[in-house]
């Protein structure tokens, strides 16, 4: 059965069991590295992606629910040569150790910053409730998200995915 998925602005016809979680399609069919398998149980957040502007756990979402919806992964926030503001902020503040959890953190932050350009410290922490980090990079992750907010406001973008996810 073929399902049409829109990921980072491009549409793809996916030939897979409709019950397949989005995570496996992103990694296995589309060759994207950003979303990571962490638990498959919706507990750790390393597979977080954004669907229609909201952070969701891709390990829990069967692709049958995504027909006609916009999926954004960390690859959709910019490239290594032209990083987007969130990516710039994480690089600038060196907000990674092993880095495995970081794309999930960034996608949770992306959804938050779309909703609210200048979130409070509490709101940032709350947006990351389901995101686990084991290296203890938490302080830098928080700082990078604040910094990304600044970068976005400085660029006076109405939202971080302006012009990126189409």
């Amino acid at each position: 059965m073929t399902i049409s998925l829109t990921v980072n602005g491009s549409s793809h016809a996916i030939d897979a069991d409709p019950a397949t979680p989005l995570l496996y399609v992103l990694r296995d069919d589309l060759g994207l590295n950003g979303a990571k398998y962490g638990c498959g149980l919706g507990q750790c957040g390393s597979c977080t992606v954004v669907v229609d502007g909201e952070a969701v756990l891709s390990c829990m979402v069967p692709i049958m629910l995504l027909e006609g919806r916009e999926v954004t992964t960390v690859e959709g926030l910019g490239t290594i040569d032209e990083p987007g503001p969130l990516q710039q902020a994480f690089i600038e503040l060196q907000a990674a150790q092993c880095g495995y959890c970081i794309p999930g953190m960034m996608m949770s932050a992306h959804a938050l910053l779309r909703r609210k350009a200048q979130p409070s410290e509490e709101e940032i922490r709350e947006a990351l409730t389901t995101n686990l980090c084991r290296c203890g990079t938490h302080m830098r992750i928080l700082a990078a998200i604040r910094r990304a907010g600044e970068l976005m406001r400085a660029a006076s973008l109405p939202g971080p995915d302006e012009g990126r996810t189409g």
Binding site: L32, N33, G34, K36, Y37, T73, V74, E75, L77, G78, T79, I80, P83, L86, Q87, F90, I91, Q94, A96, G99, Y100, I102, P103, M106
Partner: peptide
């Protein structure tokens, strides 16, 4: 000097960074 980590840009942009990838 605090040379920026060479592995971080790929890790935050979805590059191949892990054996998982």
């Amino acid at each position: 000097k605090s040379l920026p980590r060479v592995d971080i840009p790929a890790k935050v942009t979805g590059g191949q960074a892990y054996v998982h990838d």
